[in-house]
Simulated scan of single mutants.
Amino acid sequence: MKRVIFFWSGATGYMAACWRALAAVPDVQLKLFVEVQRKGDNGYRHAEVLQGLDAELRFDDEPLDQAGLRRRIADFQPDLMVVLGWRVPMCRFAATDAAFAAIRKLFAFDMTFAFTPRKLLAPLVLRRYLHRFVGAVVTGERSALYASYLGFDSSCIERGLIGLDTEPFAAACERRSRLASTPRQFLHVGRLTREKRIDLLVEAYRRYRSRVAAPWGLTCCGVGPDSRLLENEAGITACGFAQPDEMPEIHARHGALVIASDYDPWPLVIAEAVASGLPVICTDACGSHVELVRHGFNGRICGTGDVEGLARAMAWMHAHAAELPEMGRRGLALAAPYAKEQWAAQWRERIERVSRVGR
C-alpha cells in the first residue's frame, strides 16, 4: 500500500473526479489537504465537491496551524507528497518542514514561462525550495519548458497533472448530436478578469455580429470584475457562475467555445469543450491548445490579442455550421488521454516509480 498526500489550492470538480479514481485504486491510500479562497467564492460548494474523499479543507484567511498540520501528516505516514506550487503557505510548509525532509516530493504546477523579472529570476529565488523535490509534474508542453528553465532535468519532468471526468461531457456530445441542427450559440467559460480579455471577446463578437445575417448569440459563464463589460451588449447572455455538474448540459446547448485570454497557462475549459465534442476558438496564449486543439481540424487558433482574428474565426464557424459536429467529433480522441481513469493509472505507475527512487 502506497500512501500519498496532495497539497492543493482550489477544490475543483475535475480534480475531485480524478482523486476519486485514484482513491479507488486498491493499493493506493490517498489524503488531501486543500486550501480554498473564502473571498469571492460565489457559493461554490467546496465541501460537496470533495465529498467521499479523505480531504481536509481550509480557507486562505485562516491562520495555518503548523503543529496540527505536522501531526496529521506524520500520522498518515506518506510515502509521497505532491505539492502544488510555492505561493500557498500550506504547500510551502509541507515542502520545507524539516520533519518531512526524507519523504519524496513531487512539484506540481501549470505555469508557463514569460519574459518578466519574476519568472526570469525564479531559478535563483526558488533554488533551495525546488531542490527538495525529486521531480516535477506539469500540465503540458509549455509548463514542461518552464520546469526545465527552473532547473529540473528533462528525465524528471512529467506531463499529466490534470485530468477530468470525460463521461458527462461525452454524454453532452451525444445529446447535441441528436439535435436537428448545430446549436447557433457561442460559449465562453471562465472568470471575468483582465487576463481573460473579456474586452477583446466583446469587441470581436461585435465585429462578427456586424458581418453576418442572423448572428449567433454568445453565452458567458463566469463571474469577476469585468462582468460589467457584458452589460447591455446585443446578443450576449451573462449567466453568472455555473457549478461543475452543470457544465456538461451547458456544453450540450452550444455550438462552439470561444476563449480570448492573453494569459492562460492550461485552461481546463478547453479540455472540457473538446471532450464534449465542441469545436474551439482560442488564442495562442491558451496553453492547453498545444495538446487539445488542431487548427482547422477541431478548432481555430488566433494570435494573442488579435481581435480581428477572433471575429473571423466566429464568422468561419457561423458559415460552416453544418461541419461543426464532425469537427467536434475529431477532437474527442485528443481529450481521451485526460480521462480520470487514464489519469489515475498514470499516477499509480508514477507513485510506484517515484517511491523507489534512491532505494
Rank of each mutant, 00 (worst) to 15 (best):
R228N: 13
S154Y: 00
L278Q: 09
E326N: 11
K31G: 01
L84R: 14
G40L: 11
P248M: 05
G43I: 07
P26G: 02
P215K: 08
A234Q: 13
V138M: 04
S276Q: 07
R87S: 15
V357F: 13
S154V: 12
F107G: 07
G140H: 08
A16Q: 03
A55M: 08
F152C: 07
A271R: 03
R312A: 12
W216A: 15
D199P: 09
R356L: 14
Q346H: 13
V34I: 15
G190P: 06
Q346N: 15
L324I: 13
V49H: 01
F59Y: 15
L332E: 08
H289V: 11
D262W: 10
G163D: 05
P78T: 05
M90T: 10
A67W: 00
M314W: 06
R300N: 01
R329S: 13
H320G: 02
G85S: 09
E272P: 05
Q51I: 03
I157M: 10
F107W: 13
G135W: 04
V212T: 07
T304A: 09
A108C: 12
G10L: 04
M111N: 15
A23S: 12
P279L: 05
H320Y: 03
I162Y: 11
K39E: 15
G224P: 09
M1T: 12
V293Y: 02
R176M: 07
V28S: 03
I351Q: 02
P225G: 13
G255C: 08
D264C: 00
F33Q: 06
H46P: 00
F76K: 03
D27K: 07
R191A: 13
Y44P: 00
H318G: 05
L69M: 15
T116M: 04
D79M: 04
M317A: 13
L201H: 05
A213T: 14
R20Q: 05
R20T: 01
D60Y: 04
L161G: 07
L334V: 02
S143G: 15
A99L: 11
A319Y: 04
Y146L: 13
E291D: 15
I73R: 10
P78D: 10
